[in-house]
Amino acid sequence: MSAKLDRLCQNLRDVLGERIESLVVDRGEVALEVAAADYLAVATTLRDHPDLRFEQAMDLCGVDYASYGAVAFPEADQIGARRFAAVTQLLSLTHNWRLRLRVFATDNDFPVLDSLMDVWNGVNWFEREAFDLYGIMFSGHNDLRRILTDYGFVGHPFRKDFPIFGYVEMRYDPELRRVVYQPVTIEPRENTPRIVREENYGKVGDRG
């Protein structure tokens, strides 16, 4: 680990202290995890504290951890208590370092997180996207509409239990002379099955 990452980790520990849930350095990248209750306050500190100064939020995305490490989507009682997370990639131009900030929503059925829109205005559309694709609600966001899916779309397509072929398909109906939705008619298929091997299978490089 380089001296720079050491310094970043030390600064994070000094500034955030108890609020750090986990701080991992892996493959030259620093990942910080905080609780949903501290999320907004931590984000503001990360931006404003002179030892951290993350001026830019480059990316924010939702992640569904329901079937992590599993071959298929698990039974309802097998899903962990922390299913949905928002992951933000921060960048500091002053110190030239990056940080990954992860926060898990506490409720799987109705995931709610604070919006970072007032901290970094640029995350506006990223939060709309995470809401659209994963159904994560961002409280404090002033314009939380769907962004990528169709007008009137039902469901959150990037959730792991949403099938890759979807539920409805669209076609032109010559009798009604308009486009109609109908249940999908194509058969789902999987060309290459998903396989999770034991650890160290197919050892590659110096990490396997």
């Binding site: 990639q89 197919g202 990490r207």
Partner: peptide, 8 residues
Amino acid sequence: HVPPGEVY
């Protein structure tokens, strides 16, 4: 097979 982890 790619070892578990995450990168940006």
